[in-house]
Design a protein around this nucleic acid. Structure first.
Lengths: 218, 218
DNA sequence: TCAGTTGTGGAATGGATCGTCCATAACGTA
DNA sequence: TACGTTATGGACGATCCATTCCACAACTGA
């Protein structure tokens, strides 16, 4: 009963995200979102409460997506390929940061930077995402250790925290203006320094034509 | 001739920085700054132009300070202590991020996150700071290689980029909510994975009571 | 001491912005 | 088809905010 919504909520959130992503929370006007989505203020406020509510919804969805990407790339395969999955994920994230020529960065980082200090909901949600990413990385590192690719004596929690820091750090330094090639190098360097065992051991930090791919992962 | 300024510019910039740091660029009102500094609008605009000008000034000073801290910790010593200087710097930065319980993060990261996409001045200044930090780290890594502490075959540029990413990444994940102990661990892990030589080789990634300091640097 | 110049604080201004309100539209149900 | 309910969109009100303006203060040089 009653009139049904004429808009696709998912589509509206997507447009709203574009706005918040480009100009931040405080820098985005509800009129911008109204124009970008084609929705009138009445519908916007009726559906999402207020500006903060809309942002929380967008931010929450983004955090979910970030963790989901990690989950897709890191889980669901044999231990024998765990190291390749880790490598693939780290390279993918570095490539994302490197190819972000517009310097928009990641909304998770941007939102946390702008609001974590003032908004407990944002602070909590971003912290939850960090914990989830850390857990996914730790699980894969343990898998690679089980298969003997990574030194069994290494602390998986510590290595996971390092890789998470490298991935998020690449985003940060990329946004701050470090050259894209340098970001790709960072992924190679970090992966090359992991305490690998036997046949997996490599020396990706050797001098040479910089930025070349070691060919182990896309 | 003419009436002299009654305020200390340095002091005013300090207070303005506190405001921008806490609430970001768009989230800070000139009234806030007027109240925080005790300066009337007339003086504020007379001295700094407008809001953007004031922010640029604050941001520029902050970037200078960030690079200066690195310079103080990384330069001016014998090659024999280069590795210790690197270790000290990375630990210091991680500790800074870990002890930032208010989640304010670093103004360099916060400003770049909010404005790099829209403001070329901010984008340029942050990129310049990144290049300067990278150069300082590379120089010290080369010094440690000359002295034989770090593997001479390693690419100093790549290792510098990695350490920069770890340092800035620690700030980012800390702001996003990763546990402070994890940040301290990250510094140890990253330093422990550097391709050290002979007597300098350590195994800081071994499992054990997590977060313990290896005792090599404050 | 007087004139000229620059600094100071806060009121005033004009435009932007969040959120509300309301007349109307679109649907299910009786 | 008539009615109750929810959606829509844009005008509107109240506030906020960056910037300007101005009357006055403080200082220097003559």
């Amino acid at each position: 009963m009653a009139r049904p919504r004429a808009f696709d909520e998912h589509h509206v959130l997507e447009r709203a995200r574009e706005q918040f992503w480009a100009t931040g929370y405080a820098g985005t006007r509800m009129d911008d979102i109204s124009r970008a989505t084609g929705l009138g203020k009445g519908s916007l406020y009726g559906a999402f409460g207020d500006k903060a509510g809309l942002f929380h919804r967008v931010f929450d969805d983004w955090c979910t997506a970030v963790v989901e990407v990690a989950r897709e790339h890191l889980t669901g395969g044999p231990d024998a390929e765990a190291l390749d999955r880790l490598s693939g994920y780290v390279h993918l994230m570095a490539e994302n940061s490197a190819s972000d020529t517009e310097r928009r960065g990641c909304l998770l980082a941007k939102g946390a930077a702008e609001l974590a200090h003032q908004d407990p909901a944002v602070a909590g949600r971003s912290a939850e995402a960090m914990r989830a990413l850390l857990a996914l990385l730790r699980t894969e590192i343990s898998a690679a250790q089980r298969h003997g690719d990574i030194d069994r004596d290494a602390d998986p929690e510590a290595l996971a925290a390092l890789l998470l820091t490298v991935v998020r750090g690449a985003e940060a330094v990329g946004k701050a203006g470090l050259a894209p090639e340098a970001l790709r190098t960072v992924a190679n360097t970090a992966l090359g320094l992991l305490p690998l065992t036997g046949g997996r051991r490599r020396r990706v930090t050797e001098r040479g034509p910089s930025g070349e791919d070691q060919g182990d992962t896309p």
